[in-house]
Design a protein around this nucleic acid. Sequence first.
DNA 1: GGTTGCGTTCGAGTAACTTTAAGGTGCTAT
DNA 2: ATAGCACCTTAAAGTTACTCGAACGCAACC
Lengths: 145, 145
Amino acid sequence: MSYTIQEVAKKMNISTYSIRYYHDHGMLPFVKRDANNNRVFEDVDLEWLKIIVCLRSTGMPVERIQHYLELVQAGEETVPERYDMMKAQQQRTLNEINDLQSHLKMINYKVDHYADILINHKVDDFVPSNMAEAEQHEVYQQNES
Amino acid sequence: MSYTIQEVAKKMNISTYSIRYYHDHGMLPFVKRDANNNRVFEDVDLEWLKIIVCLRSTGMPVERIQHYLELVQAGEETVPERYDMMKAQQQRTLNEINDLQSHLKMINYKVDHYADILINHKVDDFVPSNMAEAEQHEVYQQNES
DNA sequence: GGTTGCGTTCGAGTAACTTTAAGGTGCTAT
DNA sequence: ATAGCACCTTAAAGTTACTCGAACGCAACC
């Protein structure tokens, strides 16, 4: 089965620009060209791309991905280094998820807080202005010098 | 309590460069200067910075953060828009966590897979080469044209 | 046979830092 | 007291990973 760049973009949910970028930077070594010089993608290329997307979206720099792909192509003696890379990536991803989850808590808090304000003002337009307390964690007035 | 840029950088776990960048782009409106023109940060600035770091690290563009901070400063009539922004950010963050978790599965798989190879080769150096099957999800040999 | 739609390349633009260069200020040590 | 060091400053240039624009090629369709 072969695909055009657009089909691949849709399948992988990334832009055609990114795909060309990865290809131009040697990260899709098996992509062929048709008679009109258009890129032709096979399933094997989708597999590579899946790896690239996975590593990129977990924050690995392109340069490291290039290196990793070289290791994979180099053969089995590079397994120790590949193992180390994936271990590190695993840890970084776990950390990133943790960070996001803690940041999410703050965002949740703000959503709830704003929802509160919105609902109270809907139900009764004349809530006494104790907002200073409600918005404790926000600062929207200049503090005097 | 007041802090130097370095102290803030350490406290917030970001670079001094980023802090200056945020300040230069109007996202730290209350930062003062001392007699030597050095930035002086107060606790209120740390609160703003905490928000900035939270929104940035959940992927909000600087431009949107600037807008959000303007809304907060503008007063209570901007709460509906702030609510919408935080709702959207909440959803984006949930999606991001989901993506990371699914990418993490692939990385976990690779870690386990490499660990397997490493252990098997440790235990017995003469494992028959059925690696083609073991590395099913990888491609490290040129497919013939 | 013009236009629409897809592809191409190359070069420039963008976001959010990050670094470098050049310099000022204040403490300390010789 | 002056040299060195650590810290701060600004302005400009560099970096990463795209992203877009311009100019073009080819193939299908009315």
